[in-house]
Amino acid sequence: MHIHEGVLHPAVLAAGWAITAGGLSLGLKRLPTERIMHAALLAAGFFVASFIHFSVGAVNIHLTLNALVGLFLGWGAFPVIFTGLLLQALLFNYGGLTVLGVNTAVMAMPAVLFGLALHRWLAARNTPATVALAAQEAPSPSAPSARPCITVPALPVVVAVVATLLCSNLLYVLALAASGKEFYPIARVAFVASLPLMAVEAPITLLVLRSIAKARPAAFTLGKQTPCL
């Protein structure tokens, strides 16, 4: 979901940069310097995972994993998504520099909003004792089966993923529509074309979360107020 350079109105570009600057400022502030390495590795992981493509008829769609980024990184999603989009502009010429603000805002705002909501929901449903026990290192190979597992219910995860993608699509459409009436038809087609992604990404995100809950529950950082890697 990239908007190209040369399409949007300057006022929309300015609004995108204003939101992104605020998000980046908050995200970088909440990201301790000594945890940069973890954020970078996660960013690289999400970047690579987003290259997994599906064939849907004649077109290829790829995962965005926005909700996962928001869940694991909270406000850190802003710098991580910004970095990913900048790398895509540098390596593949997708998007561009002036439109980077809008593209980041479109992707990161819903990710932070629904990622944090999902984090709180999971933290409320899993007691601190369960989280602490689940996060403990397994003392022996037989221990993982005996360890309590973090509960990841299907409905909230699916709702969070669908809401994240829906909001991203709506912001994308809004950015195009705010640039001129002539973009209305394109915005409508783009919105409909992105709907299949929700049907694919929601179950995949749920399966990924359940696997991570079993293999590495500490990654959820549920014992903390907000996710901070």
Binding site: V48, A49, L68, P203, V208, S211
Partner: peptide, 12 residues
Amino acid sequence: AALVTFVLLKSL
């Protein structure tokens, strides 16, 4: 999903 999980766990 297993592919995506593998990449994320590897990165962690």
